[in-house]
Design a protein around this nucleic acid. Structure first.
Lengths: 337, 337
DNA sequence: CGTGATTTTGCACACCTATGCAAAGCCTTG
DNA sequence: CAAGGCTTTGCATAGGTGTGCAAAATCACG
């Protein structure tokens, strides 16, 4: 195993000092002449600056910690892929941390410590289920944090979500104008801001429209729970369901069609939330509110880098609007055909 | 922003030398007495060793580079989640690199360089589409590499795959004993070893059974291509299709049922490969060969760590067998009901 | 208690880069 | 040509840890 080639080697070959080499590679000022000599020598020797040494002295690792809980919901892999790509484009890298299913305080602490140990420059918390403790501790450690697809009122943390209340309202508008009279709601986990906001926006708009919601059941973003909730609502004879995310909506549709032999949208209209790629598959053809992942990720990255480069920058709270995507899982109002 | 607390601070408080502190935290020998004093002082000051400094001097970062191309196929998020978790358990961390869609030589080079820059201790190449150049260069850089779900004959690299040839053969057995007479194959990408192996195992066994394959079309692991391939095979009047992975099989089923109005398995039996979680969803209920992700990942991690800790360890080539999972997308032989 | 073997400890240096500071170089202008 | 301003350069040090080496401490044993 050859010894690594260092800036001293390059300096020697180029006939300059080590600091000159450093300056050339860190973008500081240097004359054209020396820059050329240094680059040539570096090229010849195959020199690359040692990231670790650089991070050690600058205190900036150019690594972002991405905390994620559950990749089974296809919304998150999609986001993860984009995060990795966008951060790469900005010269950052992505260290992934997964939170075990039933993560307790202890697990959370360990993860935080590990991120601090690696001196990540910033953190993206891309998981609805994470306790507030985690966010608070990141904040306390003085590391920029952005919550992705997760809000936390009054936390003072930056956050990027879709316009969940508005999205919920759009679904209400859509179902009512579609002539549905017995509307039910399999809610997203009410312990999460996204779940609550979608539900509230939905119910408020229904009230404004003078329509009742037959029933609300918490599906906890979980397949089995969603099925259980669906059964409860069916007992109340619903003709339509707003389901808190696509992942649950698939389970609901499968249950309605395969287990109960019902027709969607013939017997029950289904509307989801997220517009994951699978929602467009013909087997589901799910009408749903799109969360614009691309823009959400770009906004998150921008907010994070902004905070990193200007520590005094205040935390922004961003909501990104997404359209209702009309497909075949819910009766479509005549005017919109 | 407080200054970080260093091993010197701990040493001072504990009344020992810095090296004593270092030894306690790096697991080297130390007397019980000093170890206790050091730990207590560290606890009081909130000291944690600086990972960067440690990596700089030991040359080991305890970071694994995970290269992945396409997370749209749910097999990979599942694997990624497990990698992150298992590596965390072993004290390693996961730096994720995504290869852009049409990645050229230049992109590949950049990714390698970035991994080398970060001095990753090992690399997992979890992508079938990656050029051999990447693998070769990692090897050249002297960093342990394991190919995940991807083979490369004669490369001398460690690799972990499922038993793809055997899996293909199982499908052949199953379709033939189910009484199918006009069998077609939407192949996985023939530029990948997984694709080729599944196809070869399948075709060889068909031949052994004295049965012809009506036609083979390369679906390139892509939705649109799979649909195109399906149309070509349907023109030959197939009664069953072995599709190279589940991800394509979903597209094929959607196309058959929704676009063409055919019944699965009534008109055409479909068998996939992977057994991603979605294959169990009622809408598809896909008969498929399971790739045991959990064991594949664990094996990969073990092989990688083995190579890291014992550089002379020779690269192992592991194949892991997985069962055919019987569901409703293909006619089931009477004996197996 | 003395001697030799073994463990523990501290010193000093290495790892590799970035950066403040002062000296040296260059350019401009009268 | 000289003076003054600006840019470039090298020196030296910091950043926080691991580790070889030799001294010191501990232990075993006669």
């Amino acid at each position: 195993m050859m010894r690594r080639v260092t800036s001293f080697d390059v300096a020697a070959r180029a006939g300059v000092s080590q600091s000159a080499v450093s300056r050339v590679f860190s973008g500081a000022s240097a004359s054209k002449a020396t820059a050329d000599k240094v680059r040539e020598a570096a090229e010849a020797l195959g020199y690359r600056p040692n990231v670790l040494a650089r991070s050690l002295i600058t205190g900036r690792s150019r690594i972002i910690g991405l905390v994620v809980a559950y990749l089974g919901n296809p919304f998150y892999p999609d986001a993860l892929e984009r995060f990795s790509r966008d951060l790469q484009d900005e010269g950052y890298h992505t260290l992934v941390f997964t939170v075990p299913e039933g993560a307790g305080e202890a697990d959370t602490d360990r993860i935080i410590q590990q991120m601090l140990d690696h001196q990540v420059d910033g953190i993206v918390l891309a998981s609805v289920g994470l306790g507030d403790a985690l966010a608070a501790r990141c904040e306390a450690a003085g590391i920029p944090v952005v919550l992705f697809n997760r809000g936390q009122a009054g936390s003072g943390l930056a956050q990027v979500t879709s316009a969940n209340r508005l999205g919920g309202a759009k679904v209400a508008d859509f179902l009512v104008s579609g002539g549905h009279l017995r509307i039910g709601h399999v809610a997203g986990w009410q312990g999460s801001s996204t779940g609550r906001d979608r539900t509230e926006g939905f119910l408020e708009r229904l009230t404004e429209l003078g329509q009742d919601c037959i029933g609300v059941e918490d599906g906890r973003y979980d397949h089995a729970e969603a099925v259980r909730a669906t059964d409860l609502l069916l007992a109340k004879d619903v003709d339509s369901l707003f389901v808190g995310n696509d992942h649950m909506a698939f389970a609901v549709m499968d249950h309605l069609r395969s287990t109960l032999g019902l027709s969607v949208p013939g017997d029950v209209s289904i509307v989801g939330y997220d517009d994951v790629p699978m929602a467009a598959f013909a087997a589901y053809d799910l009408t749903t509110v799109r969360q614009p992942v691309g823009r959400m990720v770009k906004t998150t990255v921008a907010a994070l880098i902004n905070q990193i480069e200007d520590k005094s920058a205040q935390a922004e709270v961003t909501e990104i609007d997404g359209p209702l995507i009309l497909r075949g899982s819910a009766r479509i109002p005549e005017g919109l055909q």
